[in-house]
């Protein structure tokens, strides 16, 4: 069994990673909820998994490939019909500074 220190969930950092603006006033609440969920999840730590290979997929088989053929024709107009903001075929976002 592994001991994990969950005592300091940094909600600001997690929200930033997930690009979710969580209001300051909700931080305590959200942290509490997350702590409860993590505590529920931690029940699995008691399972002995020594020598067990992770299973990433129930199919547990190999990947099928596609031939190198151009099969998609692109209608930019269709794809951009519902786009929030475009100009001259570009999607626009507020100016990014590197």
């Amino acid at each position: 069994m592994t001991d994990i220190d969950n005592s300091n969930i940094n909600i600001t950092h997690l929200a930033r990673l997930g690009r979710l603006a969580i209001a300051e006033s909700n931080h305590a609440n959200t942290t509490q909820e997350l702590e409860n969920i993590i505590a529920m999840i931690d029940a699995m730590q008691s399972v002995n998994t020594d020598g067990i290979e992770p299973l990433s997929h129930p199919l547990d088989s190999e990947q099928l490939l596609r031939a190198d053929v151009v099969s998609e024709s692109v209608s930019r107009e269709t794809f951009q019909k519902d786009a929030p903001r475009t100009e001259d075929g570009y999607y626009l976002v507020p100016r990014v500074v590197d």
């Binding site: 100009e87 570009y90 999607y91 626009l92 100016r95 990014v96």
Partner: peptide, 14 residues
């Protein structure tokens, strides 16, 4: 990302 084509905006070409 094209930074110099639109005022105040970055254009995205995918």
């Amino acid at each position: 990302s094209i930074h110099d084509l639109f005022p105040g905006q970055t254009g995205i070409d995918l």
